[in-house]
Amino acid sequence: MTMQARQLEMNQALLLFTSFFLILPALCTNYLMHPGRRVCYRGAASSTSLSHTESFVQPVHKPYLTFCEGHRLCSTYRTSYRVSYRQVIRKLPPPMPECCPGWRRVNSHSCNQAVCAKPCAHGGTCAKPNQCACPPGWTGRYCLKDVDECSSGTHACAQQCQNIAGSYQCGCREGYLLSSDERSCEQVDQPVPNKTTNKLNNADEEPVASDQMKEEVQDLRSRVEVLEQVIQTPP
């Protein structure tokens, strides 16, 4: 590569580099001045100028003649001061963009916080203008409406569900008990018959059978006595 070609390439690179830095400020200015997300301008977005009159002290030099050394005339000047006035034009910075309705700034240059006309209830937070983000169990614009999990089928109960304010409670049918997770149900074991109780029941039934046998024995004895009397009586 010749020296002339290399010099030409360096000149082109330098021109491109210089053009970039000349265009960059204009791009940045347009970007900063352009309304962003949740930002609304009111009035002119461009900068304005302010003109006012200000006073200043102006020195005034007055020439005069005097005698110098050798009794020669010399020309010199005397300085005095006077108050003068001038017109000053000061360029004002562009106005600060304002937040759109429903948004405001909180410790930031951007409009980062939504505004709700009413406070969000039950621990909700304002997520959008006049719209709260509600915790589980509540809904509505300001989290004032209870969610009926039992009717909507969003509960986790295994058998029965009872709706309460902001939540729900699970229950179980007869013969089941609620588990430790307060969601599922466990079947209750049936009571095992007690042997002592069975013995008592059998003991209660034995006297009934014994009374019947006694009556039969007594009847047989009566018949035997009648027969003995008949045999012993002479004809």
Rank of each mutant, 00 (worst) to 15 (best):
C74E: 06
S84W: 03
I23E: 12
E205T: 04
C120P: 01
V217C: 06
V147I: 15
P63H: 03
D204N: 08
C120H: 01
E9H: 09
A45L: 04
C99R: 04
G124P: 00
H109N: 15
A44S: 13
Y85W: 13
A156L: 11
L15R: 14
R141T: 11
T154P: 00
S80R: 09
R141S: 06
S84L: 05
C116H: 03
P234A: 04
L227H: 08
R82K: 15
S46F: 02
L178R: 01
C68E: 09
E69M: 02
M96A: 13
E9I: 09
H34T: 14
H109I: 08
W103R: 05
L92H: 03
G124Y: 00
S108E: 12
H52K: 05
V208Q: 12
L177Y: 07
Y64C: 05
F56R: 01
R82M: 13
P59S: 13
C120E: 02
T196M: 13
L92A: 10
A209I: 10
H52L: 11
P129E: 05
V88Y: 08
E182N: 13
T197G: 04
E215A: 15
S19I: 04
V226A: 15
P191D: 08
R173P: 00
N194C: 11
R141F: 02
L220T: 06
A121F: 04
E149F: 03
N107M: 07
A158P: 00
E215W: 05
Q12N: 09
V230F: 09
H52A: 07
R78Y: 12
Q4F: 08
L220F: 09
V217I: 15
C172D: 06
P235Y: 07
L15N: 10
M3V: 10
S167A: 14
C172N: 05
F21C: 07
P235L: 13
E206W: 05
R173I: 01
W103Y: 15
N11W: 12
A133T: 00
S46E: 14
S49D: 11
